[in-house]
Simulated scan of single mutants.
Amino acid sequence: MTRAVWVKADDSVGDWEARRDRVTAALEAGADWVLVDEADVERVRELGEINVAAFRTDGDVSLIDDAEDESQTARPDAAIVGKNGEGDGTVDLPGDFSGSADLSTLRRDRPVAGGAYVRILDEGYEAFAEAAARDGEYTIVIGEDWTIIPLENLIARIGEETDLIAGVTSAADARTAFETLELGADAVLIDSDDPTEIRRTVEIRDESDRESLDLEWATVTSVEQIGSADRVCVDTGSLFGDDEGMLVGSMSRGLVFVHAETADSPYVESRPFRVNAGAVHAYVRTPGGRTKYLSELQSGDQVQVVDRSGKTRESIVGRVKIERRPMFRVAVETEGGDRIETLLQNAETVSVATRDGRTAVTELAVGDELLLYHEETARHFGEPVDEQIIEK
């Protein structure tokens, strides 16, 4: 599941300056959507690229419904009902939802996606949110004096019918919403003036979407100098932590953890944005469980960064350096008896993760235990496939 962060920036926030500050914070943090009033859509478009959802004005005059209006600045990406209506309690809920003005508007033909904004004041509003979810691509639910139970109910009942968006006021609340019932809300709508809370909410979104890998130890069976080959350094646009690196290897089923060049060295200055990843033929793991050949990487590509505990994140390739260098062939054997190999440059600055900690490949010895990611699968064009492929 891909999570999303919405930022609330309608007139309940304050004047245009206050609303603009929230939109700017959303843009700078990397949020996915802003929720504004229809009158602000064009001004938001002028600030930057972001998905814009707008509370509807009266249906008879709304730009959302005006099929003649071709303006891409005035028209939002999604139209939201419920503000100053039944959804937020301004108008009483009808006993029979078939007579609902909000739902009638939501069901109307429109040129953009639709959704509902519902404050969960009691069980009747839970039922109203369920009814709206059947007709809207997005269902925003705002808890009042609720516990987590109403959100659990809605996730269980409408999780597959709509994108369920939980209203929150802090990053901590966002984490809870993303983790509820393990499945979690599809998105959160954060209502906060604090740019730090908005940025942290986006970080939590990213964390919730990332893989967590089960790394294992394998025993080194040989370290052999084999001559020179074309070696690839992957320079990323972000800094690595001391316990981070990339997963690379000659065999797609077994990728070795290679540390980034974050450690101080008497030979060269550290390069905390770089992984000296091996020879051009080797695989490197990329987001989404895919792999690429090191030779294929170029500026702008995404690679997967992993730490020793298996937590992952994404990083953008800024530059790839390919140079001819002397190499080691490192062979290891997993507990299950699978033999894995890779080529790494014969250099003191290239380090792998062993039981003893960070170890330069020049100090690696038979019997050392080396960290790697192992999976029982073959690959075709970087995608895992269910077929037998022999790698040796």
Rank of each mutant, 00 (worst) to 15 (best):
K392E: 14
P384T: 01
I204T: 11
V320M: 06
D235Q: 07
M327S: 06
K8N: 12
N276T: 11
T176M: 02
V366M: 04
P94D: 07
A4S: 15
A31Y: 09
G136F: 11
L103N: 08
G95L: 09
R19V: 08
L294C: 15
A25W: 07
R199W: 08
A360S: 15
V332Y: 09
Q72G: 06
E216T: 15
D356K: 03
D163G: 08
D264A: 08
G237V: 05
I142P: 04
A67S: 09
V234P: 09
I340R: 06
R56I: 02
E314D: 13
S104M: 07
L370S: 01
T139Y: 00
A132W: 02
D194S: 10
S212V: 15
S238K: 09
N346P: 03
V330D: 11
V41E: 00
L371Y: 04
R107F: 07
D235L: 09
E86H: 01
V13S: 12
A279L: 00
E161T: 12
D191H: 05
F97Y: 02
D338E: 15
R3W: 00
D60W: 15
D92M: 11
A9F: 13
R329F: 07
W217C: 12
T24I: 11
V5Y: 13
T57V: 10
D60F: 12
I340E: 12
S228F: 01
G85T: 13
D40A: 07
R379G: 11
A74T: 10
V234H: 02
V280F: 10
V202C: 13
A353Q: 10
N51K: 07
K321M: 02
R271C: 12
R205N: 04
C233Q: 07
V268Q: 03
T262L: 10
V61M: 06
E179R: 14
V385I: 15
E323I: 03
G136K: 06
G337P: 09
P384I: 09
A263D: 08
G30S: 00
E363Q: 11
I140A: 04
